[in-house]
Design a binder for these strands. Sequence first.
DNA 1: CTGGGGAGGGGGCCC
DNA 2: AGGGCCCCCTCCCCA
Length: 482
Amino acid sequence: MQKKLKTEMVEDLGASRLYRAPGESSHQQPQRWFNAADITVAHQSSLLKQLNQQRRQELFCDCNLLVEGQLFRAHRNVLFASSGYFRMLLSQGPDGLADSVDATFDVFSPETFTVILDFIYSGQLDLSSHNVIEVMSAASYLQMNNVINYCKNFIKSSLDISVKDEESERCPSVSETCSFTSGAGDETLEQQQQGPSSVSPPPALWTRDNSRSQSSFIGKDLDQESSASVMKTNPSSPAEDLHAEAEDLHDPQDPLYTLPGSERRRGKGGTKRKVGSNSNRSNQPEDLDMQEARTQKAEKAEELYATLPPIVGVIGHFNKDSNAIMRFKCPFCTHTVKRKADLKRHLRCHTGERPYPCQACNKRFTRLEHLRSHFETIHQARKLVCRKCKCQVTEDTGHVVCEGTRRYRMCTACIQEVDCDDIPMDSLDGANEEPALLLGVDGEEEGDSKRSWMVTDDDDLAEDSGADLIIQQVDDSDEELE
DNA sequence: CTGGGGAGGGGGCCC
DNA sequence: AGGGCCCCCTCCCCA
């Protein structure tokens, strides 16, 4: 594939060279440039191939790398040019060079390092849904930004559901394996050549080989600078893709859904304004496309979580015994956490996954506790404070006022001040009842109710009987299957 | 314009 | 590993 790409590039350049305006002299700049580019591309390709051949034959290899006990041999100059980690390691002077083993890695597997090393020497990145996270983590560790970008693109493409219907029919399986080919090796190689490319990188192009259930990603290698600029300007850049992904999940038309991360605040005002007025929405079946989108997103998020390697770690620091303290690093950002569970929780702000919908207002949350907090505050008037005068009330003195699905308390004095006809009182004073969320329904044991929150067929209760509102934990994938 | 409060989101950490 | 709690921050609304 790489060869084919290179060939195409050369052919394109050749075509450009042959296409010359009448009267254009042969010594004009374009022709010289294309000639030079032609030669450069061919030379790069040949050089990289030679280096790879030398590596495979262990010719002139001057660097030994031990990955979980498996020895890899490579060239220091190539590693230096490809990885920020190796740049730092190898620029520390000759001290560490005398050893038979120059570097030892235990934070990723030999298989992962093979992918990385193959990429360094060939420009081809063999990604699959099973290794992408670990490769990304390793690339992060080795400070190879272009590999990280490819991984992001791969993940994005795997998660991409915007063209789900048509695409899924044309391409039966979401890519199981993926091969990235880059034009000229690594970022640093390019950086060291002519700086930012004069030609903006073409958008990544997906080709799929259905017969082998395989996908190939063909894209021009993004050097650091150009990829940075692309990320700022090109909406299909990885960083923005992530946000776009999140927006995909949360229908931008739907003010109920806020965006994760930096984007999440955008829709918030709308959300708050809609809380009381959207109750009618909760009575309607969700838009099927949106539901399907959410389902697929949740499945992909689950797949992503499932592919998390046992160690997605970075060595944060050393304790007094010089033992490395492992932390779990987010593949999407620089955040690290101590526990894998915390990483999984954190990843939701990148994947946009919101598995906890409020049955009352359809608002979705990333965490159960947030949903609970929301439900208790908004729909159950758990706060024993008069909304009007802010005075403390009790379960008895604080009358619960309904406003759509929203409930709050008012003290007796404030109730009397306001015209009683204007205030829809909760006749059952339902907030005094224990919430179905916490105690279950119909005498169910708490444990059961926690796991299987009642899914009622009667969605109408959302509007008028807030006290009986039931928060439903929706397993989108199950819903989809049903 | 500004400050206070409400609501939501995220991180750390304990159970 | 998941649930839950606490805390902090940000955003928005409103007086």
